[in-house]
Nucleic acid binder design. Structure first.
Length: 284
DNA sequence: ATGGGATCCTGTGAGC
DNA sequence: TGCTCACAGGATCCCA
């Protein structure tokens, strides 16, 4: 499930392929994946709002969301949800999978080919904005600060405002943008913190440890191309290798890699949570 | 106000 | 072999 590292790596693989390319035509096969427009609108208008006829100027990321900006100033914000993929297919080449492709951008200019938005489970979606400024004020302002560069003072200030368990708080995108189930568990293990630790009761030293663990885990995961459990592929269709470095996620019942104790599995905020009862302790 | 739970959706794998 | 069924999970909405 794509979280911040997967989206950041996706951005880096797509940037050289997309920036400078022109969008010749947009084929929206499932209009309901565009979440912020009323569905009765006409086809030509929506093509323009999806950057049809425009040149791609830049890509932006905040948390788990990726935006494509056009020279005309418009923005398309892409959220991959659970199973979403964004894949560039060179002219003449065939994509690995053709099913569940909801939107296709036909590209001309320096990157001849197509950009495919594929999302079998359809938890993802697209949002269109008339400018980058509106994307930021109307959408990204609802998200917390980006987790890749979170500092301990900001993190601590935000955690103090909630009475939830640390794990639940870290996955709240309005509190901190970018962590999902995998990286929340991995960051808590790296920081030796119990997932049920009350988020508000974190001493300064602990929040420094947590913030630096979050940045470290995310940086390493970006460098490894993200975690591929099954579906995730980058912009060129390649899987990431960070799953090989997971210490707790997906390892419930197996021995802790640090102390050899059997890893515990519990549920927090509807999410499977794996942690080590020996290494991850509640603070007094 | 805050947080917990149901909901959406499909692919996969366990079990019969 | 083929079927059913539980489960996986991010965000959003509803309700206590």
């Amino acid at each position: 499930m794509p979280e911040l590292p997967e989206i950041e790596h996706l951005k880096r693989t797509l940037e050289p392929l997309l920036v400078g390319a022109s969008v010749r035509r947009v084929s929206l096969r499932r209009p309901d994946v565009v979440r912020n427009i009323d569905q009765s609108g006409g086809g030509a208008r929506i093509a323009e709002r999806l950057l049809g006829g425009q040149r791609i100027r830049a890509l932006r990321r905040h948390g788990k969301e990726l935006a494509i900006l056009s020279g005309a100033g418009r923005a398309v914000c892409i959220h991959l949800g659970m199973s979403g993929q964004l894949c560039h297919v060179a002219a003449g080449a065939r994509p690995a999978r053709q099913d569940h492709v909801h939107c296709v951008w036909h590209l001309g200019g320096r990157a001849e080919g197509r950009l495919l938005f594929r999302d079998p489970r359809r938890f993802g979606g697209l949002r269109v904005f008339s400018s980058e400024a509106r994307l930021r004020t109307e959408r990204w302002s609802r998200l917390g600060p980006d987790a890749l560069a979170i500092d301990s003072a900001t993190l601590r200030a935000r955690l103090r405002r909630t009475r939830r368990a640390l794990k639940a708080a870290l996955m709240d995108q309005a509190l901190l943008a970018g962590l999902g189930n995998i990286y929340a568990d991995e960051a808590l293990f790296a920081a030796s913190m119990h997932p049920l630790q009350p988020a508000a009761r974190l001493p300064p030293a602990a929040s420094r440890r947590l913030a630096s663990s979050i940045r470290l885990i995310l940086r390493r995961a970006v460098a490894a191309g993200g975690s591929t459990l099954r579906d995730y592929r980058d912009g060129r269709g390649r899987p990431g290798s960070f799953a090989l470095q997971h210490h707790v996620y997906g390892r419930g019942g197996h021995p802790c890699l640090r102390c050899n104790r059997r890893l515990e599995t519990i549920r927090i905020a509807q999410r499977t949570t794996v942690f080590c009862t020996g290494c991850q302790v509640l603070l007094p």
